[in-house]
Design a protein around this nucleic acid. Sequence first.
RNA 1: GCCGAGGUGGUGAAAUUGGCAAACACGCCGGACUCAAAAUCCGGUGCCCUUAAAAGCUUGAGGGUUCAAGUCCCUCCCUCGGCACCA
Length: 810
Amino acid sequence: MIKYNPKKIEQKWQDAWYKSSVFKAKNGSKKKKCYLLVEFPYPSGVGLHVGHCRSYTALDVVARKRRMQGFNVLYPMGWDAFGLPTENYAIKKKVHPAVVTKKNTDTFRRQMKSLGWSFDWSREINTTDPKYYKWTQWIFIQLFNNGLAYKSKIDINWCPKDKIGLANEEVIDGKCERCGTKVEKREKEQWMIKITKYADRLIKDLDNVDYLEKIKTQQKDWIGESHGALIKFFVEGVEEHIDVFTTRVDTIFSVTFLIVAPGHNFIDKYKSRIENIDEVLKYREDAKNVSDMDRTNQDKEITGVQLKGIVVRNPATNEEMPVWTADFVLEHYGTGAVFADAHDKRDFKMAKKYGIPLRTSIKPDDELLMQKVKNLEECFEEEGTLYNSQQFDDLKSAEARPKIIMWLAGKGLAQPKVSYKLRDWVFSRQHYWGEPIPMIFCKKCGWQAVAEKDLPIELPNVKKYKPTDTGESPLALIDKWVNVKCEKCKGQAKRETDTMPNWAGSNWYYLRYLDPKNNKELADGAITKYWMPVDWYNGGMEHTTLHLLYSRFIFKFLWDIKAVPTIVGPEPYKKRTSHGMVLGEGGIKMSKSKGNVINPDTIVKQWGADTLRIYEMFMGPFEQMIPWDTKGVVGSRRFVEKIYNLAGKKVAVKTSESLEKILHKTIKKVSGDIELMKFNTAVSSMMEFVNAWQVSEEGLDKKGLADFLKILSPFAPHLAEEIWSGMGFKEMCCEQKWPKYDEKLIEEENVLLIVQVNGKVRDKIEAKAGIAQKDAEKLVLKSEKIKALIGDKKSVKTIYVQNKLINIVI
RNA sequence: GCCGAGGUGGUGAAAUUGGCAAACACGCCGGACUCAAAAUCCGGUGCCCUUAAAAGCUUGAGGGUUCAAGUCCCUCCCUCGGCACCA
């Protein structure tokens, strides 16, 4: 018998697959299509992560199964290669980022091929390829032309020593990651994308897709839709009102002061009227250096400053009230201003601290609590019944709200309003390694898009990749590139030197796989119509709020402007699932600095790709994060090797009935588990089958072995092909039909009945399947154990669950 | 802090969704084979008491619902993901 040698087997079958192009997806085939997508990796210098191996193997299992089920499968791969790590590496080592990227993608590709994933490599894409980012730039121009891209002043993190803008990730405890200098905020003109215009659709359309519930929840919470009202608070002495957004208009009769965010433009506009403006501006500066998270932290000590000299009128009571500023009110949520009363914990605390008068207008049902609330000993935030609220007294909060809004609206003081937490998307980066933003600024004509015929605007070669001392991207230093003629007036104009964020390229990549070489459009309409939407998209939970939302938004936009055929519908992904991270041994994150990174190459070399694939699927539940355990890999290798050895010797003329039964159960279990992403139990059921095979006297016949290899092949494809071809078949195992199981064979004749007395298991009795309660009771009473337990006590009740359990209560 | 996920043997975990807790695998213990070791094969392995059998206990902590709770409800503790310029 030849010893199992994965190195030989695996290379051989990888060559055979790629040579015969069995994994090539055919555009416009008559077959039913199935588009499976995994998030394409950022090709970092560390190489492929064992976490990639988990999710890519999982969808590879699905892809291989779907092909065997007769689908025309598209399972593509590419590189999301623009970004900070490569740029930082380039700055440090003085190599061109493109050179680094080439090296890294080569490594990734080699590693991926060594795992036998069934990607259609003829469709490989790379976001840093000008032929690709031509279309990323084209999308930006469409956004601009449709009024969805605009310039706005935004604070960025600024390191005064390094003189560069920093990503949030590069700011540790308010200090620059590299030099430890305290990070400042600096205002900068940035390109913004109006994703907020799509907020409602991004929520509503979730009803029509099959995403894991937790993914839908996270998306909804991120968008943060809330229904309420916009209320006008008129400022005494000027023709001006401060708008407040609230969801709790029912509390308006208890409102005693107003709070505006420190950055609210009312402060700028009425500087001269605010008596303590210096103090207010100082407070604003301090607030700038605190993150939103810290500002809104419920446990934080509340601070605030009154805008002295400013008085507004409560539109409901007509009373005069002071205006304050406090940092827990955020500029970019709602209108940047809130009304404050005793029915909000933070307002309550703030009023107590600064001696601002408080009043209540909502009462709880509980009398005792009511007294405390009335005496301002406790803050009542829930809904309740209104009082102190004039004609709205005795209404429940929910009933009162629309009535109060109507009443105020009648006086022109309020209107219903839906507000979102979602903010517009900052789209500029002052970096080299990103897509140049295809815009030109002319002093006379303003911002204009580059002509489409001039796309792509390629990244010019520079010597230094570090941002300039003024914080601009290094592109700003290349006069020849920056200075252009205005398309309209032919006068002097300048190119935008900022580049796009990493998300720009990953927003629409799933469309490019369909038609990766098209130079006339993103992707051909007919081809897009055939393949879209993506049938199943798997990715990390960490991408749920940003990448997933951004790409859904961009797709909707492309659909709106008919860059995607209408028939496809407004959602890019039919189904979205997520995988858990693979952690290092001991449950800590794998990282270069901790030295606990597992290189898949090592595992493939030592154990083989099939073993790695099986281990990745077997290690634990797919959705859950899981620590890597090199010791555990050996179990998967034993399993793989056991199959190889058994196939070489335990082949029977006819499989025994009992083994056949187990085989059919296994086919059913594996088929179902793949759909539910329960890969770990799919593998364990195959292990159980192999154990049964091993101890069986006769062994497995040719038909049985063939069926088993078919269900094994998505998990351990090389091994399956090897044994398959050894059985004398001409075609490959991966091209076979997925096997069916016989339901009759699975049915059990006898069942083990659990016998409980007072809910405790006391005995187990074998009985005919489908036995009636009466007969079961008779059977049970024959048991000596049960007889002894019951004795002369009377049974009160008997619970019977067919084929499972009988519980006698005495 | 807010939103989301999770907590079961020495370890990774399983449990038909309210019906035998611990399948499968790692590890460990014992045995076979071997001069020996590795590999392989066979047997054992939640905890406690015990020669053994039987009983008892056990799913982060506490309480509740139920004939029956890892699973449902309430309170609390801990770990992880996201928090808008990492990808």
